[in-house]
Amino acid sequence: MKSYAYFPGCSQTKANRAYDVSSRSVAAALGVELRELDDWNCCGASAYLSIDDNKALALSARNLALAEKTSDELVTVCSGCYLVLHKTNKILAGKPRVRERIDHALEAADLSYHGGVKVRHFLDVLVNDIGRERIEEAVTRPLEGLKVAAYYGCQLSRPYGEIDDPEFPVSMDFLARWLGGEPTPFPYRAKCCGGTSMTTSPEVGASLTGKILDSAISGGADCIITACPLCQLTLEAYQKKVSRQMGKKLSIPVLYFTQLMGNAFGLTEKELLLKDSLTAVPALLS
């Protein structure tokens, strides 16, 4: 059994717990072990980077240092956490001056990090480590042509483009097909969801969200799947508000790609928490 250290991320503890629960369930169904990193902290996400990028890097490095005690790979389901942790690795490896500062900070917490942890997104693990054959074998309830708009957002493939194309990612489209679904044309698949602006400049945020929902619905999709908790919450929670602002009804079920996978694997409600959704996900998959 392949085993990875697992970083759930703050969003997954409550508001987006369905992403955490469904990811663990899908992993178990595929014989993958996700071991939750002991005493993990906030990744240093964009809001922290905005205030003090050194402290944000230290927060991120603390997680890498904890992971290095037991593993050489750290898997996360959140695209924001994925990017910050991954970026920290790159900065520490390439900039000795920063490294010195961060080493000093870690030392104050009796920790050290030697650059030995590779940060992975769970989507990358599923598509590239587990692969098509094993995923297709696990399907017991194929999606039977369900039309799926795969939404990638920003921080999964940008800026590094290491796990998918930065402009036109496709890995979740393949995944949807392996589950028996039909990926739909979706030009706005990797545009910003507006999530970071939704609280501070709601009109700006809503106009970005509107373009994504409109693009998915115009492509004929029955649902949108996401690989990021902020994208998920933004696309599911503001559909009414966005519809009002755009003067157009924009209503579509939005779910985590792991929930769609689990459903095709025949997993139960308890394992997928479909009822946590703010959109008509349970009806879609019943």
Binding site: R62, A105, A108, D110
Partner: peptide, 27 residues
Amino acid sequence: KGRLSLGSEKIKDVKGLRKMLEALEEI
């Protein structure tokens, strides 16, 4: 939906984390 936590989450080694951030402030 049970998706809103009214409390706050704390890690075990808060002390270490704060020391780490203080060390950067000193620099």
